[in-house]
Design a protein around this nucleic acid. Structure first.
Length: 197
DNA sequence: ACTACGATCCAA
DNA sequence: TGGATCGTAGTA
């Protein structure tokens, strides 16, 4: 089976809001050393900017957020709530903090494998649309954790490939207590795979 | 050293 | 709606 080709680094070396919108419809691809493949169509993203109080990099560089200040086209993966991980794509020029949180994808390949990983992660009842409909769920389904922090998104294990554009709408971001006024969440309206309609 | 909390998820 | 669960960051 031929696998879709990675988007170039230049795709990410742009304003974060542009990248967040452009990622809707693209494909997240994960290939294990074993050859196991999981692919999902991106249906929900959020932008996090350097001068944004909700952004991990807002108060400057730390050990956790260091990757956000590095070159674009790299995965920023962090641990949250003592149990989950979240995957971001680093944006902007090197030295400028910025990232796009991948909040939800629609499974396209490897759904059975995703289901096993999600069960291992604690999920009991699992509908198809619950496999990757949230940032923590997505990381379970794609087996992503802090080992993937700083890994290239144009590599041979993990990458984002092109995809047909999808109708896109925007809304305030989810789960925040600050900066709730800006609409920096992008999603494919009507998709059953988004974390919220 | 101590403390509070978070870009979440699940079951009730 | 509340509990799980712990690394991170801010404060002392």
């Amino acid at each position: 089976m031929t696998t879709p080709e990675a988007l170039p680094t230049a795709f990410y070396a742009r304003p974060t809001l542009e990248v967040a919108a452009a990622l809707i419809g693209k494909r997240l691809v994960r290939r294990e050393r074993s050859g196991a493949l999981t692919i999902g169509r991106i249906v929900e993203t959020e932008a996090y900017l350097a001068d944004d109080p909700a952004c991990h990099a807002f108060r400057g560089r730390t050990a956790r957020n260091a990757v956000m200040f590095g070159p674009p086209g790299v995965a920023y993966v962090y641990f949250i709530y003592g149990m989950y991980h979240c995957l971001n794509a680093v944006t902007e020029a090197e030295g400028v903090a910025g990232a796009v949180l991948l909040r939800a994808v629609e499974p396209e390949a490897g759904a059975a494998l995703m289901r096993r990983r999600r069960r291992r992660g604690g999920a009991r009842t699992l509908r198809d649309r619950d496999l990757c409909s949230g940032p923590g769920k997505l990381c379970q389904a794609f087996k992503l954790d802090r080992r993937d922090d700083g890994v290239s998104l144009t590599g041979r294990r993990l990458w984002i490939a092109d995809g047909e554009p999808l109708p896109t709408e925007r809304s305030p971001r989810i789960g925040l207590k600050v900066a709730t006024d800006v609409e920096w969440r992008f999603f494919a309206p009507g998709s059953p795979h988004v974390s919220r309609g």
